[in-house]
Computed example of a mutant assay.
Amino acid sequence: MRVEIWSDIACPWCYVGKARFEKALEAFPHRDGVEVVHRSFELDPGRAKDDIQPVITMLTRKYGMSDAQARAGEENLGAQAAAEGLEYRTSGRDHGNTFDMHRLLHFARERGRQDELIQILYRANFAEERSVFTEGAERLTDLAVEAGLDADEVRTVLADPAAYADEVRADEREAAELGATGVPFFVLDRKYGVSGAQPAEVFAQALTRAWDDRPQLKLVADDDAQAAEACGPDGCAVPQP
């Protein structure tokens, strides 16, 4: 079974939602049969790469919040994150364009390190003092290397704006086609969707339902037909005269 998660590194609820989903997945009896794929969704795709603002400033300008409302919202998010065992800096964080991070996540998927990289990017953005936006490619390279990726390959990807750009845009188009208007957005076997950072119990119910509803293979044969010869782990059937 495949679970696809549309998310953005700049999205605090994606950070929290990933932890809640993983709590449900860890307790799921068929977790070894679940493939998790992270998909791209930019909350601010039109933002210029050099347009970096404090999170509080972004919230007041984009959503019309007062400074007090924005700070209270960050404090609430910090409490929600802490309840999931996550670190969260409620002040002093930056907000910026995440397109390069999404390109790197597609590269990381090819190398089998996608989940490691997205968790490191979340931690760097929400828990660490150093900004993932102001320090440029070298900061992203360091984080990618921590996730197990090759530094030279990462630099090559970041130096080419077209590298994995089509994959990011394809994910975003697909999200729109599926009806996702915000993230996190979870799709289970292209059959069930879960929107938002739901409690772990909701994810557990969704996993169970999707697993139970997997299509079961039905063999087609005449009612009176005998089993035909075949090969298996113990060898092949011996033809009978």
Rank of each mutant, 00 (worst) to 15 (best):
V3R: 00
V3Q: 01
W6E: 03
S7C: 10
I9F: 01
I9K: 07
P12I: 01
G17R: 03
G17Y: 00
G17M: 00
K18E: 15
A19V: 03
R20G: 08
F21G: 02
F21E: 01
F21C: 03
E22R: 13
E22L: 11
K23R: 14
K23S: 14
A24W: 01
A24I: 03
E26I: 08
A27P: 09
P29M: 11
H30W: 12
R31F: 09
G33F: 12
V34Q: 08
E35I: 10
S40Y: 01
F41Y: 15
F41H: 07
F41T: 05
L43E: 09
L43I: 10
D44A: 12
G46D: 05
R47E: 02
K49M: 11
D50H: 10
D51C: 06
Q53C: 01
V55N: 14
I56H: 13
T60W: 04
K62I: 00
K62P: 01
G64H: 04
D67N: 10
D67A: 15
Q69W: 05
A70S: 06
A70T: 02
R71V: 07
E75P: 02
E75G: 13
N76R: 11
G78D: 07
Q80T: 13
A83R: 06
A83T: 00
E84G: 02
E84T: 00
G85Y: 06
R89M: 08
S91R: 14
G92H: 11
G92N: 06
R93N: 13
R93E: 05
D94H: 13
T98P: 02
F99T: 08
D100N: 10
H102G: 02
A108C: 04
E110C: 00
R111M: 05
G112L: 05
Q114A: 14
Q119P: 00
I120L: 13
A127T: 05
E128C: 03
F133S: 09
T141N: 03
D142W: 09
L143P: 02
L143Q: 03
L149I: 09
D150M: 04
A151G: 05
A151P: 10
E153T: 01
V154K: 01
V154N: 04
D160M: 01
P161D: 10
Y164W: 07
R169G: 00
E174V: 04
G179C: 09
G182N: 09
F185Y: 14
F185G: 02
F186L: 07
F186W: 12
L188I: 13
R190M: 09
S195G: 11
G196N: 06
A197C: 05
V202N: 12
F203S: 06
F203P: 02
A204K: 04
Q205E: 12
A206S: 03
L207F: 09
L207Q: 06
T208I: 05
A210P: 08
W211C: 04
P215A: 05
P215D: 13
L219I: 13
V220L: 14
A221F: 09
A221R: 15
C231R: 06
G232F: 10
P233G: 11
P233K: 07
D234M: 14
D234T: 12
C236F: 05
A237C: 02
V238F: 03
P239K: 02
P239D: 01
P239Y: 02
